[in-house]
Design a binder for these strands. Sequence first.
DNA 1: CGAATAATTGATCTTAGTCAACTGCTGTGG
DNA 2: CCACAGCAGTTGACTAAGATCAATTATTCG
Lengths: 229, 229
Amino acid sequence: MTLDFGKFDFESNKIFSALNENEMALLNAKTQPLSFKKGSLIFYEGGTPTGAFLLKHGRAKIFKTGIAGKEQIFYIYRGGDLLGYHGLLCDELFEESCQALENCEMDFISKQNFYKLLYEVPRLKLLLIKNMSHEFGVLVNTITVLAQKPLRERLALHLVLLQKRYEDDDNLDGVIQLPREDLANIVGTARESLGRLLKEFKEEGLIDVQKRDIALTDMETLMRLATAD
Amino acid sequence: MTLDFGKFDFESNKIFSALNENEMALLNAKTQPLSFKKGSLIFYEGGTPTGAFLLKHGRAKIFKTGIAGKEQIFYIYRGGDLLGYHGLLCDELFEESCQALENCEMDFISKQNFYKLLYEVPRLKLLLIKNMSHEFGVLVNTITVLAQKPLRERLALHLVLLQKRYEDDDNLDGVIQLPREDLANIVGTARESLGRLLKEFKEEGLIDVQKRDIALTDMETLMRLATAD
DNA sequence: CGAATAATTGATCTTAGTCAACTGCTGTGG
DNA sequence: CCACAGCAGTTGACTAAGATCAATTATTCG
């Protein structure tokens, strides 16, 4: 398997970052600020989409509630990402839930305004198309990894990806700060199995663990593990 | 888990079916017929997309080659479906491979002509957006099922879905005709495990097996199994 | 400070994967 | 038309990766 690593390391959902000043002004005229406290639900599977959310600051998880309430997390959003547009654009109920992992600052765009913006900024449609067709490849990759890679390699892969998601001005090293349960639900395993494996990684000098914080100390090996055939 | 069953039972990729006569004429002026014999590759992961394929007749599998060459199959395409447009639209290499399961008749649309068509039929962009945002929900569902459902339930689910994919004029009952290995690679298991489970299903009267052909005989129970929490 | 929540640890169990041998089917060439 | 080579499918025995259960210890937060 030539695991196209680049495909994982994506900066999707920063759809609006390609807009110029004029276009941004058109966008900004249509949004209203919205705050979510850590832990609060931004939208919920089964709910009716009323608009999309532009995440300005903070992190949020997108997930689906599976068997016995166990969450399967697909992505950790951060500043710059657009959230909740899938359900909006296909006129269906939300398929996924989204919850704030930290206090979040958002700009809300109502459905009506979103479509107005698509009309005023036609190339936004192409940006969406490009983003979603890229996203397809990412999800397809996720499925293959989940179906075929053993836990150890999945964990290595996700640690590398998450580090990228956590890198920012307040966290230059990309220290991963997630409850164990969430990390388990990203990797696709049980809390206990994740814990044991984290201990192993620590003992092997691959990571450094401080309570909830995970820092990657041997990127080289982790990358090799993650992309091992 | 409220498994949104409808989400699976989708008729995605029939993107062009919404076009009217005029629009169809514009499309037809841009395509050229192409035949693929059973077993031949239509496109391959890592290859450069040169256009999209409108499948007229026959079935094809879309998959990714994983560890030790094991394929992970995502979808079985059939007549009416559009193939290979993701890589084309995000200007990346193909992330997936596509292979004819039967002799296939296609209409090929070159990249240039595809974009020309998007220009001539602007609402096609919205149709693509709608389709792909729907598809997101489907893939997200697939991931959750794969990560959380036991094999027995996954098999039941995929049998129900595949039956729909196989229903057509030549096969009113939707008898599933796939090599065991392909079926295993859809469900996400090993050939041997699949075989054993098929035998169980047969003994429980859920399915009828004739060589390679699988007919569903107890839809009720299969559905219940597939959507069991 | 103490209750509630999260993480760790150990023991055990289960599912499904792997390995290996065997059977049967298919299609090709003598 | 049959033999046989080459796949595809089946079966059984064994193994291992992870899940689950249960108990304990840390952390967090009101």
